[in-house]
Design a protein around this nucleic acid. Structure first.
Lengths: 365, 365
DNA sequence: TTGTAAGCGTTATCAA
DNA sequence: TTGATAACGCTTACAA
């Protein structure tokens, strides 16, 4: 009835063996005689000893068996994004046989200051960075300094860092070409967040975009529509897509909107409906990701489907390689075009941008 | 250029101060003169020291700053369940200000054997158990023995354990009453897994059900339809609902199926369609959870919506209380009825169960 | 098969 | 404001 939790030393003493022997009984790393094992186990249960303290064991071993997953967004919001969900699925799969758990971390500068586990303080053996945070470089530096192997999903990791990527530019270009083939010329891009502060608004200079995915997908769109305007949303969600969609339509009605995510596209469609525009007759909308967006029926987005689960799995395998001291190969996945019912030929050829009148001006509230 | 990572002792030596002083510079727990601080910080950066090793610090402090989230299912699958997703959302929210990270754990007996972090070995300060695993009691014992505070979501935790619950029985009863009001008498329950092995099949004796949620929801259905048969699925998914649905229809066609989750309900509907039955004309189907099921359109389930996010948040708050030594209050949330288009009056009054012929017998392959 | 010894890198306590 | 000391609880060469 001591106030203090039993330790392996207590167990060893009770069993009449040495601490190392007791340790070995629990780890199983060395043969132990049955008699000894029984003595130790009996002593353990009589003392209420539940096995080695993981903290102490980790310290001694030098590894925690934990893989950090770093998101750029508020943790809560992250799970609501189907792409992330599928990636986690693949990641968990690939990391499990490794004997590692997943620790959810977020890239929040404010978190560094608090006591919250962050990239600087979490007891992780490896890290998977998801998304292309502007702070990515800092994070990589921190992790490199800590000697923690890293795999980056969708971000410019610099040389020597394993990355899991998508053919974002080619994929976005493909959708854009699809629109051009349909006859569109007056097109607007609705992009993912573009700057660190995630301000919404028209993008003045593509070079200002610090977020890789945003810039690269936009470049893909520009390969086909060099002059198209681009409006940055504050996040990839239906609501933000809706807000951005209103803003876009307030400035004029293009014949097509290239959204950088399916969720944004869904929001765009809602904004179009609100403005009295029919999709795809009055406005074509394309998405990106290939996730099923809840409640979007009867629309089926024309979009680029990305292998989200595979990306996660690849990241897990890369982490495994790194933790075993092997080199992790970078990998680039390919999106596939998926035609839906949200794109069609524009109603009439457009002589010049935005001369189709602004139907939305009256309809929006 | 030593091969070994610098420690705080190295930094202290380099700075010409004691280790404890150097430690204090990093923790900030004790005032340090500016001069000393600078010396230490300079020494640290010149040695590439990135701050205290979290493992060592944790060992010394006796806490890891990590909250374990224990799922009963395969981790990958877990994220695909919208209810869980929303719960995680709330949980992450509530736990963040606490300064704790979330470690994903799964309740897999096989995992115990492997090196994978599990409930017995993970370095966690508290645990949230999600779902009503048959092993719940064991887990609680293990955690109790380890002295780790616990909060249980949806499970019979026994006295003294904080629980976050739903009014499962009342909620399920409400849906059942809705069906009875429509005129249904020939009803089958399609339940969540009922036993530890998760075998699919007809439930012979409700007392055999070891899974709380399953038993309690079924009891709610039985309050209205005492004689209804019940078929247990092996998991809450559309696919399992589909398989169970086939099996149910193979045994006869009821006028309504009470599914214990929306996903199961969705699978049931697909099985009904496959058998040439129209929903709701030939078969009414009710769900549970109130999540939006992808691809179910144009159906909108008649279901009980549960406040999943709030449940997660409440759990996080309970964990916070526990970690601070306070008592955590249990909390019970209420579901709300949501009518959809998957229920209607039965086509004709049923004289006795299953005499409506077995249309499915021919249709199923 | 078991025991000895030497840390793993910190931080809390207390005294100076 | 700083320093000496003593844990924190475990694991693993290595020797017996």
């Amino acid at each position: 009835m001591s106030s203090r939790r039993a330790t392996i030393a207590d167990v060893a003493r009770e069993a009449g063996v040495s601490a190392s022997t007791a340790s070995v009984v629990f780890s199983g790393k060395t043969p132990v005689s049955d008699a000894t094992r029984r003595k130790v186990l009996d002593a353990a249960s009589s003392l209420g000893y539940t096995g080695p303290d993981p903290l102490a064991a980790s310290l001694r071993r030098g590894r925690s068996g934990i893989v950090g997953v770093v998101f750029q967004d508020h943790l809560g919001r992250v799970f609501l994004d189907p792409v992330v969900t599928h990636m986690m699925d693949g990641l968990a799969d690939a990391v499990a046989p490794l004997g590692a758990g997943l620790l959810l971390l977020r890239d929040d500068p404010a978190a560094e200051a608090s006591s919250e586990p962050s990239i600087t303080t979490a007891p992780i053996d490896a890290a998977v960075l998801i998304g292309c945070s502007p702070r990515l470089r800092d994070q990589l530096d921190i992790l490199a300094a800590r000697g923690i192997p890293v795999v980056v999903i969708e971000g410019d990791a610099g040389p020597g860092v394993a990355r899991i990527d998508l053919d974002n530019r080619e994929a976005q270009r493909e959708v854009a070409q699809h629109l051009r083939r349909l006859g569109h010329t007056d097109v607007v891009s609705l992009t993912l967040p573009a700057d660190a502060r995630r301000t919404a608004g028209w993008i003045r200079d593509d070079e200002d975009i610090v977020t890789d995915v945003t810039r690269i997908r936009l470049a893909g769109a520009r390969d086909v529509f060099p002059e198209a305007k681009a409006f940055a949303a504050t996040a990839s969600s239906i609501d933000e897509g809706f807000a951005a969609g209103r803003a876009i339509l307030a400035a004029g009605t293009p014949t097509a909107v290239i959204a950088q995510s399916d969720l944004l596209a869904a929001g765009m469609i809602r904004a179009a409906e609100e403005a009295g525009l029919r999709v795809p007759e009055d406005l074509s909308v394309t998405g990106f990701d290939g996730v099923t967006v809840d409640g979007l029926a009867p629309y089926e987005l024309t979009t680029m489907a990305q292998p989200a689960t595979d990306k996660g799995r690849a990241a897990g395998e890369a982490v495994a390689a790194r933790m075993e001291g092997r080199d992790a190969a970078s990998f680039r996945f390919t999106c596939t075009f998926r035609g839906g019912n949200t794109t069609a030929a524009p109603r009439e050829p457009q002589a010049s941008p935005h001369d189709a009148g602004n139907m939305s001006a009256t309809a929006r509230r």
